[in-house]
Nucleic acid binder design. Structure first.
Lengths: 195, 195, 195, 195
DNA sequence: CATGAATGAGCATTCATTCAT
DNA sequence: TATGAATGAATGCTCATTCAT
């Protein structure tokens, strides 16, 4: 695909806006094209079909997510710090792009099973990051050596997701990043970190 | 509404089966009617519209959930024990009704924002139960007195939800109830409970 | 299918009219529905899809064709007479329904290969009738005993088809039935019949 | 038009191949351009539009047909012989170019009424040849002096056409030229030729 | 002459809901 | 109460043609 052409990103950004503002089921291809400033047919020069737009959207944005997280995590030396900056980063990115927050937390979940399976594939990269932090914390004796990494990752991911979704459903009216520290403490306690 | 008439529950149970077996977007009213053994039009004698079926379904099932949980929680004297039986109960009910697990964890989440907001209303009864355990644990000095109840509730609920969803997505092929104890320990640690 | 319900035939007759008057590629389902006096969706209670309308149309009309032909053929005792009444009958039916003539000779031939293969299946019943006349003529010594039935059937069918198509393409402005006798003589000569 | 430029014939030959291999409705301009090794836009330097490609294709190929037929017919002295070589020639040319046979007998017939009318115009040159043979046969007393030339031409043309179409629909799996003699005899009989 | 990216009109089909019986 | 035939709005995608380069 022509992922480097400017119109590729142009269409994805248009999709985020249209989906956030109209809802998943009201995000017609023609609306996305109009928002992107191209003709309907042009969409199909860059994407196989509508489904491909949604999956590409998720892949592009999540790729940025994972990339940013890898950067900030690498800059910290303890597992606790790594987890904290990851949480802060997660909250910050979504706080800064309210459209993206709506799309990932609410709208894209209405897609059919096929799309969601592909989205889950993309998510695995993110889950892997969390695992790495946990393994690191166990190695450095910060965390309980008997920690069940799979369950703990589910706790961390589930907690973050629930926190953000609640925030979006409350119309993003409070400061999400400000909660990072408190939720971090809760999770670190869960991991058996020092209090 | 005619919630006591036999056909009311008959249609709701049919909806659970049809949604679980066909997926949310393939669960047409006519399919639900056929499964329930009534005519399409009869559905509308018991429900305002399709949305009403889904919300009623959630309310009925979740009502049973909260009721059962209140029972088991009342039988325990410490907050930690209360949380444990709640988690066990949660896992057990979903383990025993695989259709319901699929519907609540995967399919019903594909519904639009409007339906999900109403579902969230129903969920508040459940969240309130968690809050009560947390307040109780703070009172009894089991939990950290400075615990942010709202955030902690999000952690508990998000973790449970993620755990069950992962289990459903893995085709329910391992023992969910068996994980109760481990996840309980993680969450209790998070709450500052004794180790 | 509900082939006996009045709307079934109503829709097929509407399709003949719409296709004849607008052309194959301008015969939208909505136009057919409007002509039939039903809603678009009603079409799909009686037909699987648009293709099914066209094939059913051909099957219904051709069924009438074969049926009528069997009647008139049975009433004659020589192969030459049988062939004559078949030709007359063929010409008469199409002369009496100018819409049907346009649809079968011009418009339906624009359909894709899949539809045309199914139409050809239906046509086999008609070709079989011609074969029967030829075998009968050979038995009764009217026709050349060495007649190649397959080729001769192709001659008869090809000649009739070309004659009718030419007539339709000339806007049906001359009397088709009046040509029956002359074309019959040509074909009978071909078959080695007495002059 | 630029009918002498090499790309003109190049595009027409590409069209024959693409239509034969993909079918009329799957023969997009872009596919023809690709097959011809030119850009989509280049097509429009040599042809007015897609319709023009098809009609030109037919004209070019049919021109060769008529030309060849005129040659072989001129070499024979009786009408019966002329008809025989014409039939043989017709069968031979299509036997030798299976792509062309598929295109003229099956695919091009799916075109709309407008194109088919123009194709018929081109065909008139061919029909005229048949007429000439018939007039010649009447003059030389080979054929019935009362022969209806127009009808007889329809018989000859319809028969040939049906024969070839049947052969193509049966995947060209038998020898078409070998049938020339038998079909010739049938047609000559029809014309009142000596037996 | 040649290119190929961009255009945008056009349509079969589904399914929640109604209402005459 | 119960039925189920009928309704009709709503949308993703293709492809012939253009035109700036």
């Amino acid at each position: 695909m022509k992922r480097n052409k400017p119109k590729y990103k142009q269409i994805i950004d248009a999709a985020v806006i249209v989906i956030a503002e109209n809802g998943y089921h009201q995000a017609q291809v023609s609306k996305i094209a109009k928002q992107a400033g191209v003709a309907d047919g042009t969409i199909y020069l860059y994407f196989k079909n509508k489904e491909d737009i949604l999956i590409s959207l998720f892949r592009e944005k999540m790729g940025y997510f994972v990339e940013k997280n890898e950067e900030v995590i690498a800059g910290k030396s303890t597992a606790a710090e790594k987890l904290l900056v990851m949480i802060e980063n997660h909250c910050r990115i979504l706080s800064e792009d309210s459209h993206l927050a709506i799309v990932t937390q609410l709208e894209l979940r209405q897609s059919n099973k096929e799309i969601r399976l592909k989205i889950n594939e993309v998510l695995k990269g993110y889950l892997h990051l969390v695992d790495q932090i946990l393994y690191y914390g166990i190695e450095t004796n910060e965390f309980d050596p008997d920690l069940d990494v799979r369950l703990t990752r589910q706790m961390i991911f589930g907690t973050l997701d629930e926190m953000v979704t609640t925030w979006v459903m409350n119309d993003q009216k409070y400061d999400l990043v400000a909660q990072s520290s408190a939720i971090h403490q809760l999770l670190i306690n869960g991991c058996g970190g020092k209090r």
